[in-house]
Amino acid sequence: MSAAISITDLQVVYDRFHALNGVSLEVEAGESFGLVGESGSGKSTLLRAVAGLAPVSAGTISVNGQKLGPRRDKAFYRQVQMVFQDPYGSLHPRQTVDRLLQEPLAVHGIGDGETRIQRALDEVGLGSGFRFRYSHQLSGGQRQRVAIARALILEPSILLLDEPTSALDASVQAEVLNLLEEVRRARGLTFLMVSHDLAVVTHMCGRLMVMRNGETVEMLSAAELATRQASHDYTQRLLAASDGFVRHPGTFSPG
């Protein structure tokens, strides 16, 4: 199997601030790869750099064996699509679901819009009853399903997921994650997924990379994470933090 995404020594600099500092990464085709770390660790920046939304100052990114320049062409966007974190901000407030899904087809000059939109809505579990609604007429989970449908309608082979469920409540989270897992299996997609929720990453991803301050801390498999075999101190602390607040007996005395 060849690498779907291959990143070497990637640097992203915003106004002299090093958001990413020499990160390298290989994601196999059909794999689901997780990026974890605290806020500001550069995991979302890495995703945006692949999508072409962050300024790359050094290093290379290759997708399906092709090296990417600073400008992406239309063929790239048919291979790589992204689902954003906040479904309340990622849908145009003045457009119906129909219009949102038509847009990528119009940009790429794809003809059979009717059937594609119908199929995309069915695939994400929204019937045709949702097709002509505006985004403010949808719940958070439904919005995220529309966003996923929009990403899938161009039939990409790679999906970039920027904390796709962190803005949703727990029950809807599980539904959306199951939906993503289903489409990945059905279409053989490659996922590159950012999350700060270690449980989500363990559930969704085969391998993952822990990041801090724009640098790689370590690479782990999901099995290692589940059994807590992290070698690095920082990962251990991240794991402890994800257990939530634990009161140590004897350290707290009321009154």
């Binding site: 072409g52 966007y77 699509q81 992204m82 990622s90 145009h92 407030p93 940009v107 929009r150």
Partner: peptide, 12 residues
């Protein structure tokens, strides 16, 4: 905003 980013990501 993300919805304009999303359109950019379609290659518009």
């Amino acid at each position: 905003s993300d919805y304009i980013k999303a359109v950019q990501l379609m290659g518009a």
